[in-house]
């Protein structure tokens, strides 16, 4: 295994997003504040509690999740996609970096970005609604697995995409609907049938609910079940990206 190669790619990925601190730091500050103003204050006037939590507390885990998901996905997808557009993917393909090393580098970098933004979002949210952490390990697990899954999916999108429109396909047509159906701003249990059942097939629901359990102390699913489901999702996604990368699909001529 090419440990140094992997490490080099990882550090490069981290440095890349550190060079645009506006996107990394400023955007979560702005978007979280907006979410609180728009959703938090407008709705909390009418909706006081959801699942036994004050509404302003209830939405925090979901907002942290959104920060992680969007940024992890954005980082790995855009970074890998840009190498294809710039032609610098040649450097990666010629070098002794196998699928495992490439994944470690890109996913590692994207996870750091997702977690940094998630952390900042949490910090900003705490200013509005106070800080709450009930189960640190559970929270850590769901932060980790959420950022991991979206980093892997970002790679998959970048491998598949050949044009700029295509790289926006996932975030717009897959991620956005699923995140809004993921119970960030409401409890999926309160959805009318059949949507409450359909929601059970949306992995993001388990991410949000897992974080909710960890941060606020209760959720509509057992974190063990959600955690197990997500572990399977992560394993499958990892396997798919590994096999696709090894095949050279859309990366090699």
């Amino acid at each position: 295994m090419n440990v140094l190669g992997m490490q080099t790619l990882f550090v490069k990925e981290v440095r890349r997003f550190m060079r645009v601190p506006g996107q990394t730091v400023l955007s979560p500050l702005i978007s979280t504040t907006l979410y609180f103003i728009v959703f938090g204050y407008s709705i909390s006037g009418r909706v006081h509690e959801v699942e036994g939590q004050p509404y302003l507390h209830f939405i925090v885990p979901g907002l942290v999740f959104l920060g992680i998901a969007n940024n992890a996905f954005l980082n790995s997808s855009s970074s890998l996609f840009i190498t294809k557009i710039q032609g610098t993917v040649v450097d990666l393909l010629v070098a002794p970096l196998g699928p495992g090393e490439l994944m470690a580098g890109f996913i590692g970098g994207a996870m750091v970005r997702g977690l940094v933004v998630g952390g900042l979002t949490w910090a900003v949210a705490a200013l509005f609604s106070g800080f709450s952490l009930e189960h640190a390990l559970v929270t850590a697990y769901f932060l980790f697995i959420s950022s991991y899954v979206f980093s892997v999916l970002g790679m998959l999108a970048a491998i598949w995409a050949e044009k700029f429109e295509q790289i926006n396909f996932f975030p717009t047509f897959v991620m956005l609907p699923l995140t809004f159906l993921g119970g960030v701003f409401y409890s999926v249990r309160e959805l009318p049938s059949p949507w409450n059942t359909i929601s059970l097939f949306n992995p993001m629901v388990y991410m949000v609910e897992g974080l909710r359990y960890g941060m606020l102390g209760s959720s509509i699913f057992s974190p063990v079940v959600g955690g197990a489901i997500l572990a399977v999702v992560a394993a499958v996604a990892t396997g798919v990206v590994y096999v696709v990368l090894r095949s050279g699909y859309r990366m090699k001529a």
Partner: peptide
Amino acid sequence: EINFDPFFTVAESLRIQQGYYGR
């Protein structure tokens, strides 16, 4: 085909390349 990563300097690009090759 010429390719370059506009984020990095000449020396950094070379150091990254060394790293990719496990050096």
